[in-house]
Computed example of a mutant assay.
Amino acid sequence: MDASRLPGFLLRRLLKSALVIVAIAICNFLLIHAAPGDPASVIAGQSGSADPQFMEQLRHQFGLDRPLHVQLGIYLRDVLTLDLGFSHRQQMPVATLILDRLPATLLLTGAAFLLAVSGGVALGALAARRAGTWADSAITALALTFYATPLFWVGLMLVLLFSVQLEWLPSFGMSDPGLDLHGPALWWDVAQHLVLPALTLGLFYLAVYARLTRATMLEVADQDFVKTARAKGVPEGRILRAHILRNALLPVITFAGIQAGQLIGGSILVETVFAWPGIGRLAFDALLARDYAVLLGVFFCTSVMVIVLNLATDLLYAVVDPRVEVTG
């Protein structure tokens, strides 16, 4: 990678990313408003009043009585100033709600991502090195099982086994609300609560990385440069690490950059099952309450995170493979 071309590459990618974010914001706004349901009716029901005059007042208060294109223009103007709106259900700014919940989601998805990538690459490398043996068959069967099993079912089974039967781990929440913990004790309590949801979310993607790593390693192992290294007497361990695994990681890195964004979306189901206080659970509650501002804020933030992760993936790809140029 030519370092002199990096600033220009970053500038072009940032400009393209800005256009993509605006386009995503417009699509999210139109999709949310095309969904059935009236937020004013939900608010009025929560207030215990369905008087038409009161509902009209609510629509005017939240700008729902304006034409759709006017609402869209106001929304885009606010987004450009990082104003994500106000939650009628929580009676708080949307940005505050998201910032309060975002660390929990990043902790969950980060732990699941590390588990998936490290475990998947390790299992895939072991399966490729033991190709055709019982170990390869066992890893393949295990990966296919994790891939085909619904996330919510895995989560419930883990709760039944480790929380109900064995009583090893807590089942729900991020920490024990009945304990006033601080410092290392608090972190240990959060870590215990993190195990089951991170395992549930990570096992599915672990299976994907294991299969991908195995396939790419077997493909790279048949390349001429690997055969040449063996003919020169290079130790098999060095061939595996420096030649096969390093080249096999290139498609894994690309796929990991895409899957990292999908992890945030997949966390909605896991956070709901385990009552994890992240933005996925926040989006689910906002959907039930027709809280448009919160939904749009969550979608906007997750879109930005996905784009940032994709940009980081491109840079990492160029670092891992010196043949990649950061032009165009």
Score class of each variant (00 low, 15 high):
residue 215 A to Q: 14
residue 177 P to N: 05
residue 62 F to K: 11
residue 155 G to M: 06
residue 228 T to Q: 07
residue 229 A to M: 09
residue 217 M to L: 10
residue 39 P to M: 03
residue 79 V to R: 14
residue 71 Q to P: 00
residue 70 V to K: 04
residue 4 S to W: 04
residue 87 S to W: 08
residue 172 F to I: 10
residue 97 L to I: 05
residue 187 W to C: 00
residue 3 A to Q: 11
residue 203 L to K: 07
residue 174 M to R: 14
residue 100 D to H: 11
residue 18 A to T: 13
residue 328 G to Y: 07
residue 98 I to H: 04
residue 16 K to Y: 06
residue 35 A to Y: 01
residue 262 Q to A: 12
residue 72 L to A: 09
residue 46 Q to H: 10
residue 205 Y to I: 01
residue 75 Y to F: 13
residue 281 R to T: 04
residue 203 L to A: 11
residue 181 L to Q: 07
residue 281 R to F: 12
residue 44 A to R: 11
residue 22 V to R: 15
residue 208 V to S: 09
residue 45 G to S: 13
residue 262 Q to V: 05
residue 294 V to P: 00
residue 261 G to P: 04
residue 257 G to Q: 09
residue 189 D to Q: 10
residue 49 S to N: 15
residue 306 V to D: 00
residue 208 V to C: 01
residue 28 N to A: 15
residue 116 A to N: 10
residue 93 P to F: 03
residue 263 L to V: 01
residue 103 P to F: 10
residue 85 G to E: 08
residue 107 L to I: 07
residue 319 V to E: 03
residue 243 H to D: 08
residue 187 W to K: 12
residue 39 P to E: 06
residue 290 R to Y: 03
residue 190 V to N: 13
residue 216 T to R: 15
residue 270 V to C: 10
residue 221 A to E: 10
residue 193 H to N: 04
residue 102 L to Q: 09
residue 82 L to V: 13
residue 267 S to W: 05
residue 190 V to E: 04
residue 228 T to E: 06
residue 10 L to A: 15
residue 295 L to W: 05
residue 297 G to E: 05
residue 211 R to A: 13
residue 246 R to G: 03
residue 97 L to H: 01
residue 324 V to G: 01
residue 119 G to I: 01
residue 137 S to F: 03
residue 243 H to C: 00
residue 200 T to C: 11
residue 255 F to I: 09
residue 320 V to H: 07
residue 27 C to V: 15
residue 62 F to I: 10
residue 61 Q to Y: 06
residue 105 T to S: 11
residue 200 T to D: 03
residue 141 A to K: 08
residue 188 W to P: 00
residue 310 N to T: 03
residue 204 F to N: 09
residue 68 L to F: 03
residue 315 L to C: 08
residue 271 E to H: 08
residue 245 L to Y: 06
residue 93 P to L: 12
residue 102 L to H: 04
residue 112 A to F: 03
residue 42 V to P: 04
residue 99 L to V: 05
residue 103 P to E: 02
residue 57 Q to T: 15
residue 83 D to K: 14
residue 64 L to D: 05
residue 118 S to K: 13
residue 229 A to R: 06
residue 69 H to V: 08
residue 51 D to N: 14
residue 219 E to K: 00
residue 58 L to C: 02
residue 12 R to D: 00
residue 108 L to H: 07
residue 259 Q to H: 10
residue 201 L to H: 04
residue 273 V to Q: 13
residue 243 H to M: 01
residue 62 F to W: 14
residue 173 G to T: 05
residue 288 L to F: 06
residue 35 A to P: 00
residue 297 G to S: 14
residue 171 S to A: 15
residue 170 P to C: 12
residue 321 D to R: 09
